[in-house]
Amino acid sequence: MTRQPLRLAILEAERILAAAGVASPRTDAELLAAHLLGVERTKLMMVPLVDPPVVQALHDLVSRRAARVPLQHLTGTASLGALALEVGPGVFVPRPETELLLAWGLATLDGVERPTVVDLCTGSGALALAMANARPDATVHAVEKEPAALAWARRNADRQTQAGDTPIHLYAGDVTDPMLFMELEGLVDLVLCNPPYVPEGTPVPPEVRDHDPHQAVFGGRDGLDVVRHVVGCAARLLRPGGGVAIEHDDTHGGSVPALLRARRVLEDAQEHTDLAGRPRFATARRTRPE
């Protein structure tokens, strides 16, 4: 059985993915090869030759990716912060843009000892678990209403607890419920949320349209149906000086900060852009007593 150059197999994978319209064909080809070989992407150069069955297995994965199955569904994982989270059908795949929201949240907690954090619309548990990993002294609460997504969050939470991370408190619940987390009213240092926010009817890539849960992506006619409830919930939960960060659609650069400013108990509403310069998340603080 003649071994074959991995470099040529990756070049062919890149060609197939580029022809299929995948946005990052070389990156995806290398990540699929690394996943298949069980090595880091940066170590692929240390595997010059592979057996023909490996080439065939890579071709099979690449064919599925060319059919626009999400890369993360093929590898089984998505990253946020220092964590690799399990994802698959039934749960929203975390996006790199959310790293910026996480970084803002961590910076907000600088100097706060044993903070209380709430992650609304937790999905896979990404933000909650990344926060617990980065701040082991934090008490982190997370809520999700969709049973399939909640199952993924529980799986990820169990894995991180077994790995030694601080356990999070995971709940089945709906952010539109005015009684949600009533026991935490006025006690929370940080509220984070990556809600469904895409306006209905907006064209989205096949990976999103065909694989992400519709209810985790789209937020009503203007994309703000869930965001409005998140703002109200955050205003109720935050302690004086506490902060809230809400990810949103790039068309919401004015509307989400306006929703935050409309709450008299919130101040310092600001808009933040992603690495491409597009509006991506908004933040505010709970007013301090004079």
Score class of each variant (00 low, 15 high):
G164Q: 09
P199Q: 06
A153G: 06
M182G: 12
L180P: 10
D165T: 13
Q160Y: 15
L170W: 04
T166H: 11
P167W: 05
D210H: 14
R221A: 14
D212F: 03
W152P: 01
T161I: 01
H214L: 05
Q215D: 08
Q162V: 15
E200S: 13
A216H: 04
G201D: 09
Q215W: 06
L180H: 12
D165V: 11
N194P: 07
E200N: 10
A151E: 14
L192S: 03
P206Q: 11
Q215L: 14
V175M: 09
A163Q: 15
D158Y: 00
A163S: 12
P203S: 11
E183M: 11
C193L: 08
T161Y: 01
Y171H: 15
L184F: 09
V188A: 07
T166N: 12
D174V: 00
P213D: 09
G186V: 11
P203K: 11
V208S: 02
N156K: 07
G223I: 05
E207C: 07
W152M: 06
E185F: 01
W152L: 07
P199H: 11
D158C: 02
A172Q: 15
V217C: 02
E185M: 12
V198S: 01
V198A: 03
L190V: 10
V198G: 03
G223F: 00
Q160K: 09
L184C: 09
P213C: 10
Q160G: 03
D177G: 11
E200Y: 01
G173D: 11
D189W: 06
D158V: 12
V191K: 03
G173L: 09
V188S: 01
A216Y: 04
V191A: 06
A151V: 00
T176N: 08
R154A: 15
V188L: 07
D222Y: 02
P213Q: 08
G223S: 01
D174I: 01
A172H: 14
T166K: 13
V175L: 11
L170Y: 05
P167Y: 04
L187S: 13
D177I: 04
A157V: 07
D174R: 08
D212G: 04
D165A: 13
V217N: 00
C193Q: 05
D210L: 14
D174S: 11
P167K: 09
M182F: 10
D222P: 00
D210E: 15
D174F: 10
T166W: 00
P195G: 09
F218P: 00
D177Y: 13
P203I: 07
Q160A: 08
H214N: 01
Q160M: 14
N194R: 03
N156F: 07
M179D: 15
H211M: 10
D165P: 00
A216M: 06
W152V: 04
Q160T: 04
Y171A: 14
H214P: 00
D222F: 02
Y197R: 01
P196R: 04
N156V: 08
P195S: 07
H214G: 00
G201P: 04
D177R: 12
E200H: 02
H214I: 04
F181M: 07
